[in-house]
C-alpha cells in the first residue's frame, strides 16, 4: 500500500514554514507592547501624558524639560473646567483626596492644586501616583510642570501631607473640549506586583 502514501518529504517543509508563522505571531504579540506605548505617547491615546517616561525612571526632570519650552499665551476667550480625582489601589493603606475638586481656567494659565494624602497604617510606606487624563485627546495638551507623581512619595506612620501639582492646559487644546478630568491612582511601591487579593477585596 506504500504507493498510496504521498512522499512525506513534502510535509516537513510546510510544517517548518507553519511553525515559523506561529513563532512570528508570538513575537508579534510582544512587539505590540513597545509599539503600543510609542503610539500612545505620540498621540496621547488612553490619557497617557507625555510625562510618562519621567515617571518611569522616577527622576523629576519632567518639569525642567517642560519649562524650557517657549511659554504659551493665555487664551482668555474660553474657559475649561478641570476636575480632580484620585484612587488608592488595593494593598496601600492610604487615604487621598483632592483639596480642589474642580477648577475653571483659561488655557495657558499656570495653576496649582493640592491633594491631601494620609498614611493610615502603622508603618512607613512608599507610594507612587500614576496620572491619567480624560478625554484622551486632552492628554497631550495637559502639561504638568511639577507633580508629586514625578517621584515616589514616602509617608511615615500616620503622616499626612499636602502634595502639590503645577500645570498648564495648553491653548492648543481642541476647542470642543470644555471638561478635563485628571485622575491619580496611588500604588504601593514596596510590593511592586500587587498581592493576589480575594475578589471581595479587589472590588
Amino acid at each position: 500500500m506504500d504507493h498510496a502514501h504521498p512522499a512525506p518529504v513534502g510535509h516537513g517543509r510546510l510544517v517548518g514554514r507553519l511553525v515559523l508563522v506561529v513563532a512570528a505571531a508570538f513575537a508579534f504579540g510582544f512587539a505590540l507592547v513597545p509599539l503600543y506605548n510609542v503610539l500612545c505617547e505620540a498621540t496621547g491615546f488612553n490619557g497617557k501624558t507625555g510625562d510618562k517616561k519621567v515617571i518611569r525612571d522616577g527622576i523629576g526632570v519632567g518639569g525642567l524639560a517642560a519649562a524650557s519650552r517657549a511659554p504659551s499665551r493665555i487664551d482668555a476667550t474660553r474657559t475649561v473646567t478641570v476636575e480632580f480625582t484620585g484612587t488608592v489601589m488595593p494593598g496601600l493603606p492610604w487615604d487621598m483626596r483632592p483639596l480642589t475638586v474642580s477648577l475653571d481656567l483659561h488655557p495657558g494659565e499656570l495653576q496649582q492644586v493640592k491633594y491631601l494624602v494620609r498614611n493610615t497604617s502603622e508603618r512607613t510606606i512608599v507610594g507612587q501616583a500614576v496620572p491619567s487624563v480624560t478625554p484622551g485627546q486632552a492628554a497631550q495638551h495637559f502639561e504638568k510642570l511639577d507633580c508629586f507623581c514625578f517621584a515616589q512619595q514616602t509617608f511615615a506612620p500616620g503622616e499626612s501631607r499636602e502634595l502639590p501639582l503645577t500645570f498648564i492646559v495648553k491653548p492648543e487644546l481642541a476647542k470642543d473640549i470644555r471638561n478635563i478630568t485628571l485622575s491619580y491612582a496611588f500604588f504601593s511601591v514596596d510590593k511592586p506586583s500587587p498581592t493576589p487579593t480575594t475578589p471581595r477585596e479587589s472590588r
Binding site: L32, V33, Y36, N37, C40, N46, K48, K52, I55, R56, M89, Q128, V130, S132, A185, F187, S188, V189, P192, S193, P194
Partner: peptide, 11 residues
C-alpha cells in the same frame, strides 16, 4: 499591565 510600573491595562 500594571499602571504602577508604567504598564497599561488597556494594552
Amino acid at each position: 499591565f500594571n499602571a504602577a510600573g508604567g504598564g497599561d491595562p488597556i494594552l
